[in-house]
Design a protein around this nucleic acid. Structure first.
Length: 137
DNA sequence: GCCAACGTTGGC
DNA sequence: GCCAACGTTGGC
């Protein structure tokens, strides 16, 4: 199983909305970036991901699971763009702010630190465990 | 609100 | 195929 990170502007699509969708989940649509799309193509059912709020919050707030493989993005007719579906699994007891991630030397190579603009990112097993721990899981 | 970093576009 | 110009994102 692989780990990922999904980034969203909370005023566009927030964790509360994701949770409200329940086990049905929701398309992670609107991605218009080849790198991000290519990562979504690699995802398998059951892969886990962090849900990150950008802008004012800048925190990892929850954990999601991939519940549908990559398919055409329903928000565009452009066949280049595809996305997976994800569903909320659980909230982090303690959201992990970007500042804490940056302050942790073992997380210095996280894509979130290295390339903050990429909206869908891979996360290593070690990074996953550490951020879960920092979030109180 | 500003600006740096990055990706995309289009002219040559 | 290169590179300048432009647009977008997101941290500060």
């Amino acid at each position: 199983m692989a780990y990922w990170l999904f980034k969203s502007e909370p005023n566009t699509w927030g964790w509360d909305q994701q949770v409200a969708k329940g086990d049905v989940g929701e398309e992670w649509d609107g991605v218009r970036n080849y790198q991000a799309r290519n990562f979504m193509r690699q995802m398998q059912i059951g892969d886990r991901g962090f849900f990150y709020h950008s802008l004012k919050e800048k925190s990892v707030v929850g954990i999601v699971e991939v519940c549908a493989l990559c398919h055409p993005d329903s928000t565009t007719d452009d066949s280049r763009w595809e996305c997976v579906d994800i569903k909320a699994v659980e909230s982090l007891p303690e959201p992990v702010p970007l500042a804490e991630i940056k302050a942790e030397p073992r997380l210095a190579d996280m894509v979130l630190v290295r390339n903050s603009r990429l909206s869908v990112q891979p996360v290593t097993n070690a990074e996953w465990r550490l951020v879960c721990e920092m979030g109180g899981l």
